[in-house]
């Protein structure tokens, strides 16, 4: 059995678990955790593909792409976390997707 395929499947499982968590969790922090799991899964699939190309040489391009991806993901995570804190501060709401009657009517900023 090809061990690389193991890592592929592992990445897929992480992806599926993350997706499930992203949609099902109610707490925004858990949603963000789940999104991070998803990206980790994608990275795993990318890197295991880099060695799976059959040559003795490892393909460095996916490595560089994953490095970029890690940085991008920490950036978005940071912004998301600050937003979560602010939303919590202003609305006292732990539940993100909850509908609220006033939202339709409330004032917006021009």
């Amino acid at each position: 059995m090809n061990t690389l395929l193991f890592y592929d499947f592992s990445g897929l499982a992480l992806l599926a678990i993350g997706l499930h968590g992203l949609i099902r969790s109610s707490h925004p922090l858990r949603k963000i955790l789940a999104a991070n799991l998803m990206t980790s899964g994608v990275f795993l699939i990318m890197i295991s593909g880099a060695r799976g190309t059959g040559q003795t040489m490892i393909d460095p391009v996916p490595h560089a792409m994953v490095l970029t991806g890690i940085v991008v993901s920490v950036s978005t995570t940071a912004v998301a976390l600050v937003l979560v804190c602010l939303v919590q501060e202003t609305t006292n709401r732990a539940l993100l997707w909850q509908k609220r009657k006033r939202e339709k009517w409330g004032r917006t900023d021009g």
């Binding site: 997706l19 949603k31 963000i32 999104a35 998301a80 939303v87 609305t91 993100l96 997707w97 917006t108």
Partner: peptide
């Protein structure tokens, strides 16, 4: 800076992450 805008932004961010 309005709460509604921040909430919308957070949703937007999560969707765009996905």
């Amino acid at each position: 800076g309005k709460p509604a805008a921040r909430l919308a932004a957070l949703r937007y961010l999560l969707v765009s992450l996905l």
